[in-house]
Design a protein around this nucleic acid. Structure first.
Length: 261
DNA sequence: CGGCGCACCTGAGTGC
DNA sequence: TGCACTCAGGTGCGCC
């Protein structure tokens, strides 16, 4: 808990735009000189709640990193946001590819904005509403590949390409299966596999959180045992067949042709 | 409307 | 060594 209880004493930013333009005025007006109450997550967004009811919304995109540094530590290439704290530390948002985003929900609109934001997001995999019945209903009129469905943030929140690949391997389901063909039993399996994969990933990533003070941080998934992702041509850990790679709905897709049929 | 393709960026890796 | 080219973990828009 590095942030809750800390006051943000100054906000600085780079002149580069991220996926959304830097909300300079809003950062100054609503985030600077506020104290952080709590941090939540919705889908892959971080919600940093301030004591005035405003919310700082962060998304790391593909290459975004947050790090806590002493104020005097040298600034790095691709740093885009600096939140100076009242303990002489600085939270820094670094993102080389600039697919990340930084938004502010001003206090007087934050309720409405958060409601709209949440309404546009899919089911959280760890929530009680991630059920076979819900998925069946969402999928019944769609023919898209199940992998694209799992990665669609309006359907399911927070599943990226790696975890979609790994979930479907664990569930033994071919990534291109039309989503309206998935049976009740298969949905149950997908739910269970998805949660297992995410739990393992969080556990593995958790160890990188502890050295997030340093700059030598590796992404957490390097510590997760990947069964299919980026393993084209290598032996399936289940049956020994070579893992195949193909593009499905525009994304690199890895699967075992025997275990996922 | 559903589903795909693509754009938004930089950097790493590969092959010549 | 350098250049040209491909590919990358996310998201949302536009187009058919």
């Amino acid at each position: 808990m590095y942030l809750p209880g800390r006051r943000i004493t100054a906000v600085h930013w780079s002149n580069k735009r991220l996926r959304t333009p830097m909300p300079r005025k809003l950062l100054k007006a609503y985030i600077e000189n506020r104290t952080v109450l709590t941090i939540d997550r919705r889908a892959k967004y971080l919600l940093v709640r301030a004591d005035n009811g405003s919310v700082l919304v962060l998304h790391l995109g593909m290459t975004g990193k947050l790090g806590l540094f002493p104020v005097a530590a040298p600034r790095a290439r691709h740093d885009h946001l600096y939140l100076r704290l009242d303990n002489n530390m600085e939270l820094r948002f670094n993102d080389s590819r600039r697919f990340g985003s930084i938004m502010v929900w001003p206090a007087e609109q934050s309720g409405r904005l958060e409601e709209a934001f949440t309404a546009g997001k899919g089911i959280e995999p760890f929530s009680a509403s991630f059920t076979m019945e819900k998925l069946l209903a969402l999928a019944c009129n769609k023919r898209q590949p199940v992998k694209a469905f799992l990665m669609d943030s309006k359907m399911v929140a927070g599943i990226g390409n790696i975890y979609a690949n790994e979930t479907l391997f664990d569930a033994g389901i071919a990534p291109e299966t039309a989503v309206n063909q998935i049976t009740e039993k298969e949905w149950q399996q997908i739910i269970s596999s998805c949660r297992i994969i995410l739990e393992k990933a969080i556990e593995a990533g958790g160890s990188t959180i502890s050295d997030f003070l340093g700059s030598n941080g590796q992404p957490g998934y390097f510590q997760l045992q990947l069964c299919v992702y980026d393993r084209a041509g290598e032996a399936c850990k289940g049956c020994g067949m070579p893992i195949e790679k193909k593009v499905v709905a525009g994304r690199a897709t890895y699967f075992c042709p025997r275990c996922q049929s």
